[in-house]
Amino acid sequence: MGILAFVLGFTLLFFIGHIVLHPNATFETILIRNFGLLAFLLLHVILITGPLARLNNKFLIILYNRRHLGVTMFLMALIHGAFSIMNFHSLGDINPVKSVFLSNLRYDSLIHFPFQVLGFTALVVLALMAVTSHDFWLKNLGPKLWKALHMMVYIAYALILLHVVLGAVQNESSPVFFGSILIGFITVASFHLIAAFREKTVDMPIDGTGADFVKACMVSEIKENRAKIITVSGERVAIFKYDGKLSAVNNFCRHQGGPLGEGKIVDGCITCPWHGYQYLPENGQSPPPFTEKVETYQLKLDGDEVWIDPRPFPEGTAVAPIEIA
């Protein structure tokens, strides 16, 4: 509802602004520009949401709306693309889609490059993501493939940046256009870099090659009903403390790859912070009737020190939790 109000409000403002300040602008030009701008803005919001939620879990609430934002953004981009093709490429001597690729043939030049081809390709990528956004595809493709497919948003972003810089920006004279795009890019890149850096420092990798057990953390570092995430032998592992016990599972939620270690024990289950998928800490299995499973790990205590066997048990293997004295 909020997204729809945002889109309608922006569109209304943009149209009224043109009627007042640019009365000679044609309806289709305003429409194309409005939805292009909206899609571009929403794409930045979508890209910022992920790292922002990693930096502060209070922003996870926005992550739940990311799929809706993504589909809305695709629809905005689709209106922009469809009207552009109708406007610039239809009613001519060749098929409009062919015209996108064959009208401007300066593929050999960066300055003259047919920028509409970049936008069209980005739209195809976004369409693929929007179509597969439903859980049906997540279940059928598997979380890893699905996640990889949806990481293509970064390819779409790169294509859209080039589409805008080699298209609209070249037709305008104000450096503010290029400056805004640069600020947008820097913002997105900064959030990602800060989140990655913080994750790297919080989550120092432990080399567990060849060892039976390696030191993971102190019991006191883990809050009640919460977890400490460590990286051991290249895998992220979440060590949970609950009811005076400790259990360790793979950090990667089988739903959408959410960080289980940033979740909480709710009703005796590890609950993923992204979409609430649940797993029993003692065996890594989702409670029936659900069937998702994650790998489990053997822990041991040495005083206040928590030690972990870096070799994972197969997904869903029961491992007795260790009691905290």
């Binding site: 945002f6 922006f10 640019h22 000679n24 602008a25 030009t29 803005l41 305008e172 104000s174």
Partner: peptide
């Protein structure tokens, strides 16, 4: 987050209106 996004969008939209090239009659 919503308020910040809204403010950024409004500023960007209004700025765009003032800096885009004028349209011929």
């Amino acid at each position: 987050f919503f308020i910040i996004t809204l403010i950024v969008a409004i500023i960007f939209g209004i700025t765009y209106l003032f800096i885009e090239r004028p349209f011929i009659e």
